[in-house]
Design a protein around this nucleic acid. Structure first.
Lengths: 123, 123
DNA sequence: ATAATTGTATTAATTACTTAATACATTAAT
DNA sequence: ATTAATGTATTAAGTAATTAATACAATTAT
């Protein structure tokens, strides 16, 4: 796992996103046990509290849960994982559309523009 | 003009965005004179330095320029304004696509999803 | 029983950022 | 010449957020 961070955003946020991706993508399967806070922290070269914070936030979202002394686990609820992915995605889409509107583009404009950019990318 | 702010992001950022929108949308036309820093600040109920900062950032982007004692003006370059709008838009699109990828969606996925959301919105 | 491993809580240090206060400099207007 | 209006610079105050240090609690394994 390549733990990499930029200095733009808080480390705990980036940790959260990366771990979330590991779960959503299935690399950490539903029900599986995560490494301990300390192990994850040392692996990512980060203070344990920072990792703890990232994990706590993931926990709030229900993607993982902790059992006081036996460790942390990915939720068994595969449906929840899927829903989480979809709802975060939708949130990002709405934010995006809103920002574009604030720039003077209608939602319809934005659709077209995204299509264009993606086509350019492919080429 | 409705100067409204949330507490999520810095005020100067929000000022910048709102003024930028006024320019891009043509409400502050190319070449026109802006109110003074102090006037804008008092109108927005904001410290002059905060407004100054927003304007300075806009200046870095070339959308406005200042003449030491006569005031600030929107660039005469209408093409630049248009390009600015387009380049900021494109930046937002790329960021969006990147975030979606980090969530496990390909660019093609994202296009389809945006379309879906927009259709829902219209309905 | 003891030790080791786990998550958790509390507090402090650091850092960065935002906003504000104030003074300065330049030019246009009177 | 003087005043008023403009943008600018500098510094400080205030605030919030992030990270780190450390200690605690609970349970599992030995």
């Amino acid at each position: 796992m390549a733990w990499q961070f930029d200095n733009e955003r808080p480390i705990y946020t980036q940790l959260l996103e990366q771990i979330r991706f590991l779960i959503i993508s299935g690399l950490y399967p539903a029900g599986s046990k995560l490494p301990s806070v300390r192990d994850l922290a040392s692996e990512a070269s980060v203070n344990p509290n920072t990792m703890q914070r990232a994990l706590a936030e993931l926990e709030r979202s229900g993607l993982i849960y902790s059992q006081r002394t036996s460790g942390r686990f990915v939720t068994e609820d595969g449906v929840l994982i899927k829903q989480m992915k979809e709802s975060i995605g939708k949130e990002k889409i709405l934010t995006f559309l809103h920002e574009m509107e604030q720039l003077g583009y209608t939602a319809a404009d934005s659709v077209v523009l995204v299509e264009k950019v993606v086509e350019e990318e492919i080429r």
